[in-house]
Each structure stands twice: as C-alpha cells, then as structure tokens.
Simulated scan of single mutants.
Amino acid sequence: MITWKDKTVIVTGGGTGVGRAVCLKLAEYGAAVALNYCRSEKEALETARIIEAMGGRVITLQADISDDNAVRKLVRDTENAFGAIHYLVNNAGITKQIDLSDLESVTDEVWDHLISVNVKGMFYCARAVAQVMKKQKEKQKEKQEEKLNVNQGDCAIINMGSIAGITGSGSSLPYAVSKGAVHCLTKSLARALAPDIRVNCIAPAGICTRWWEGEEEKMYRLSGKLPLQRISTPEDIAELVCSILVQSSMTGQIISPNNGMLI
C-alpha cells in the first residue's frame, strides 16, 4: 500500500477547477504539493491556505508552462523545497471557444497559443521532471546494490487530455487537435521514459468547472442525454488521478471518465 506522506507531486494549473481538487485530494492523502499557477494567483494562494489549514505541505510556484526556462525553474524550486519529485500532474491547459464549422476564425495565433500550452507545455514539464526522477532512480538503485534498506521510489506522470481529442468535437477545432496530440504525447513519453517512469492520460468529458460558467442550461441538457445522467465533478477526476498515479502496472493508457458518453 502506498505511503503518500513521503511523496512529492507537482500539479500544474493547480489553483482552480480540477487542478485545485487534485491538490486538495493529494494533501488529504498526505503528499507534499507543488502548486503551479500562471495567472490565477489569488485562487492558487487560497488553495494553498486550505491545504495549510488541513496540516498539509504546499508551495505555490508561478510559471507559464509554455516557457521552457520557467518550467525548468519550477522543477528546480520544487526539488529544492522537498528534496524529490515523484509525480507530475500535467493539468494546466487552455481553450478557445470557436464553432467547429467556423474555420476562418481559426487563426495562426489561436493555433500557436493552444499548441504552445496544451502540447509543448506538457512536454516541457515532463522533460524537466524526468531528469529529476531518473536521477532519484539511479541513487536508489545504488543504495539497493549496497544492500541498504531503501525501496525504489515510484515515479509517474499524468497528462490531462480530453474526450475532444477522441471524438474530434469540442470547444474548437484547434482545442480538439491539441488534446489528440496530448494523447499521442502520452504514448510516446510512456515508451521513451519506460521502465523508470510511467505516463498515462485522463481524457474526461464535461466537468463542472468555471469553463461551464454561463452555460449551466447547456450542461444540464448534456447530462440528461448521458447514460449516467450526470456531469463529472472536479472531485471525481481528482480521485481518478490519484488512483492512476499509483497503478504500477499501467503506462501509455488513455482513460476517459465520460459518464457513458462513448457507449
């Protein structure tokens, strides 16, 4: 059984929505949390205050994940604060509301922004933490060879995809394409980082977050058409993230919590 109290987790986009729920769940389990945010400083600090009130360990780190240098600093600061990094939750992402048939509104700027954050940003984060995780693995192997009583640490990455990357339909065409790329990135990283680091992806359908603000009627219409007649909550996704992080036999998988949308 996993002991979360000796684990450190970076959660990107951890101040709001699913990211916040993941941070709170990890803190509840006892993990040390490095909560990354880009612009949502107020929400990030509030999330950190909640964790601290629970008696949890947390630091908040501002970084734009589309900036490779900022990501590398984020990882260094986390390692300096907690001494190790065991898990990465690649949650930060952006969207753009454009009707799927409105191809003329899909500008180069839209493409560049979504790909830089949703795809390249996740790659930057994975690449930076992989260096730390592999270094930890080597040290642990050396200690094991010296017959010291040290268990080899578990290391894993979860990328946040989307059902849009499976169906091709979502808030916009570039968003769906970017999430399809995240799913492929997951499989490629799983191969590249095996056997030391497991990499999986969650591809949820609609979730009750601030992205649905002002569209509650649409959300309820959608939920009524689903077999389970509900929309996932951030807490649902947080529970799933935590369970997949510790599944030692799973890598390269795309898991879609969608309340039956695809059946």
Rank of each mutant, 00 (worst) to 15 (best):
K7H: 08
T8H: 02
I10V: 05
V11R: 00
V11A: 00
T12P: 10
G13C: 05
T16F: 10
G17W: 05
V22W: 01
C23L: 11
K25H: 10
L26F: 01
E28D: 11
Y29F: 10
G30P: 05
A32I: 07
A34F: 06
N36R: 03
Y37V: 02
C38V: 13
C38Q: 15
C38D: 13
A44L: 04
T47R: 00
R49C: 14
E52A: 10
G56A: 03
G56Y: 04
I59E: 02
T60D: 10
L61V: 14
D67F: 03
D68A: 08
A70T: 01
V75K: 01
D77A: 06
T78L: 00
E79Q: 11
A81H: 08
G83V: 07
H86M: 02
H86R: 04
Y87I: 10
L88Y: 09
N90R: 04
A92C: 11
A92N: 13
G93N: 01
I94E: 05
Q97N: 15
I98W: 12
I98M: 07
S105A: 09
S105Y: 04
S105M: 13
T107Q: 11
V110R: 06
L114T: 11
I115L: 10
I115C: 09
V117G: 06
V117T: 15
K120E: 06
M122Q: 15
F123M: 15
Y124H: 15
R127W: 09
A128H: 06
A130R: 00
M133L: 07
K139D: 12
Q140C: 12
E142W: 08
K143S: 14
K143N: 12
Q144W: 09
E146V: 11
L148G: 11
N149R: 06
A156I: 14
N159L: 09
M160S: 02
M160F: 09
G161T: 01
I166L: 15
G168K: 07
V177C: 03
G180K: 00
G180V: 01
G180S: 04
G180H: 02
H183L: 12
C184Y: 12
L185S: 07
K187F: 06
K187G: 06
S188C: 14
S188D: 13
A190M: 02
R198V: 07
I202F: 01
P204A: 09
G206H: 11
C208T: 15
R210P: 10
W212D: 12
W212I: 12
E213K: 15
E215L: 14
K218D: 14
K218T: 13
M219Y: 12
R221P: 02
S223G: 05
K225G: 11
L228T: 10
S232I: 00
S232R: 07
S232L: 14
D236T: 01
L240Y: 15
L240Q: 14
V241S: 02
C242G: 06
S243M: 10
L245S: 03
L245N: 08
L245A: 09
V246M: 07
S249C: 12
T251W: 04
G252K: 00
I254W: 03
I254L: 02
S256V: 11
S256Y: 11
P257Q: 05
N259F: 08
M261A: 15
I263D: 15
